[in-house]
Design a protein around this nucleic acid. Structure first.
Lengths: 110, 110
DNA sequence: GATATAATTCAATAGTTCATGAAGTATGGA
DNA sequence: TCCATACTTCATGAACTATTGAATTATATC
């Protein structure tokens, strides 16, 4: 994960449909969701969603796998790890104890 | 932190100078850095930096405080917490154990 | 008050991103 | 082979974003 990857990932997440898609896939975990299902769930046209999924793919935030006619998409947790690690690198002025509350709050999401 | 706040924050981080500024401030912790110091460190013009700092402020990713003629900027860890909490809400298909590695890797940044 | 320093605001222009309709590709079944 | 389903790609115009020079505001010092 370098700066250019991080920029691509943040740009990917700064668009309403893509943020919705990513958050939807995050809640799905390993089950993932087919492109068409996502389009129906979020009420987005197929070609618009396809363009947005390809942005998320390029950004490394989602993965996909063909299943017959459908293509199933998954949140890519490795991509998220890399992104957040890059963003918070060397944080808190070298005083790790300042970071602990930040990290602890995140665990509340799960 | 709602969806619109999150979009604003991700958009703020998807621009090279702003990502540099935020990461620089993250490494500074409570020491922060004056606008002029940041401009010199990153070799950005004062008005360009000012515009970018105001985007980061609006996004809740940095705070500032006037100190005489200078204005000192700080990374806003509460803003980051809110953002990441929103992004990862209800993650991993309701199986918290899948999230633990993600969270554990993040702690490595500190 | 006058001047210098630190930073912000403004208006204009150049560049980027987005959703869309239309067309194309891949897979599965009749 | 033909058709339907699932999804992607492409070109275009409309909307948004970034940087810049010039002007402005705020604070400190002389």
């Amino acid at each position: 994960m370098d700066k250019s990857d991080a920029l691509t990932a943040f740009a990917a997440l700064s668009q309403p449909t893509r943020l919705d898609v990513f958050r939807l896939l995050i809640t799905r975990g390993d089950a993932g969701m087919a492109a068409g299902e996502i389009a129906r769930a979020l009420e987005v046209r197929q070609n618009t969603l396809s363009a947005n999924l390809s942005v998320l793919l390029t950004a490394g935030l989602v993965r996909n796998r063909r299943e017959g006619r459908a293509i199933r998409y998954f949140a890519n947790t490795d991509g998220v790890k890399g992104l957040l690690g890059f963003l918070l690198q060397d944080c808190c002025g070298g005083q790790p104890e300042l970071c602990q509350p930040l990290i602890r709050d995140l665990t509340g999401s799960c």
